[in-house]
């Protein structure tokens, strides 16, 4: 089992780096080429969520991304935000998305979850085992 860990200070500029690393490790693990766009988007959304939570709660600790290929390609994105774990929002429908009263941050959060749920079949959002924070866990099959 190979594991790659990346931890980055919670700044938007580093999310791209996490995406690039996540896709490179996915390719190396044997995730099918046609899934890589989805892997890139999902890791980006999970990291964007973590960065947003750290900034919202003034948490300066790093965001952790852990990738492993033990039988499948599993990615954990761990934040240290003091929130209840969960997807937070149900997917928004077209009427809600177009509603004038929905602000851009809430819309972005809802759309981000819709993308995660839409692109990752095996998705979990749960509290971390130790301490404060949540983890987004995503698993993709490897086709070797």
């Amino acid at each position: 089992m190979a594991t790659v860990k990346l931890s980055f200070s919670p700044a938007p500029v580093h999310v791209r780096t996490a995406r690039l690393v996540g896709v490179a490790v996915a390719r190396r693990a044997g995730v099918r080429e046609e899934l890589l766009d989805e892997v890139r988007l999902a890791i980006g959304e999970a990291c964007t969520r973590a960065v947003a939570l750290h900034r919202q709660y003034g948490v300066s600790e790093p965001v952790l991304v852990e990738m492993s290929d033990a039988g499948s390609y599993a990615v954990r994105v761990v934040d240290r935000a003091p929130i209840e774990a969960g997807l937070g929002l149900a997917a928004l429908n077209a009427d809600q998305l177009a509603n004038e009263s929905l602000n851009e941050d809430d819309l972005t959060t809802g759309v981000g979850f819709a993308l995660l749920a839409g692109f990752v079949e095996d998705l979990q959002v749960r509290p971390v085992d130790e301490g404060v924070g949540t983890e987004v866990r995503m698993v993709w099959p490897v086709g070797r």
């Binding site: 995406r19 890139r40 988007l41 980006g44 959304e45 964007t48 998305l97 177009a98 004038e100 851009e104 941050d105 819309l107 972005t108 959060t109 759309v111 981000g112 993308l115």
Partner: peptide
């Protein structure tokens, strides 16, 4: 090459502003 939820949020914001 790549568009995420933040980009989509910006586009929706522009749509609403222009419609208004």
């Amino acid at each position: 090459d790549f568009l995420d939820s933040t980009g989509l949020g910006v586009l929706v914001g522009a749509l609403k502003r222009l419609r208004a």
